[in-house]
């Protein structure tokens, strides 16, 4: 048993948790952008509250906490594995393709995490009526949250390339 619980095992464990929470996060991000947002105009007015009062708040809960769990497990994983600083500095001058590639993924993921907690969630609270706001403020909040969500969808494509490519498709 003692041989099983090594630092290699803990690193694996955090990588496993990091992948699961990452799927929880990006899965919901893609649900919002590929399913919910394009469907909203087609839903009859009297049925919209099913989305805005029940489904969207629950999806946003798992979305934002998935983002938090992903960055926390990712930073622990990088620190424990010894490549945190190399990745933050994009491996410049190191000629280390792993650190450079994962570093791009980490920076993109960090921008996306910022968008979730600073731009999307505070504005979505106004849009969904979780906090009160004037109608023009709600309109502006919907625009900011929507654009930040689209930026994250765009960034998720290179981010996932970098995360998977660092180990499985290095130069």
């Amino acid at each position: 048993m003692q041989e099983l619980v090594t630092s290699t095992w803990w690193i694996f464990c955090f990588r496993w948790l990091h992948i699961m929470s990452g799927i929880m996060w990006i899965g919901h991000l893609w649900y919002f952008n590929f399913v919910q947002t394009p469907s909203m105009p087609k839903i009859p007015q009297e049925q919209k509250p099913a989305i805005t009062k029940f489904i969207a708040p629950a999806a946003l809960f798992w979305f934002r906490w998935g983002a938090m769990a992903t960055i926390v497990t990712g930073l622990i994983l990088a620190g424990w594995s010894g490549f945190l600083w190399g990745a933050i500095t994009l491996g410049i001058g190191e000629h280390n393709s792993h650190d450079t590639t994962i570093g791009f993924g980490m920076w993109l993921g960090t921008i996306m995490w910022f968008n979730v907690w600073v731009l999307i969630w505070p504005n979505q609270k106004k849009v969904l009526g979780i906090v009160s706001a004037q109608p023009d403020e709600v309109k502006r909040a919907a625009r900011v949250a929507g654009l930040a969500s689209r930026v994250n969808t765009m960034l998720s494509i290179p981010m996932l390339y970098a995360m998977a490519g660092a180990t499985h498709f290095s130069f």
């Binding site: 590639t101 765009m154 494509i157 130069f171």
Partner: peptide
């Protein structure tokens, strides 16, 4: 001019374009 991020298709295309740019940058650094 319309914001390309208002279109889901254009958002995805931009994501792939950014991926190519990123790969070129990685290649230049490594």
């Amino acid at each position: 001019m319309k914001n390309p991020l208002d279109s889901l298709q254009q958002t995805v295309v931009l994501g792939f374009v950014l991926t190519v740019v990123m790969v070129l940058l990685i290649h230049a650094i490594v």
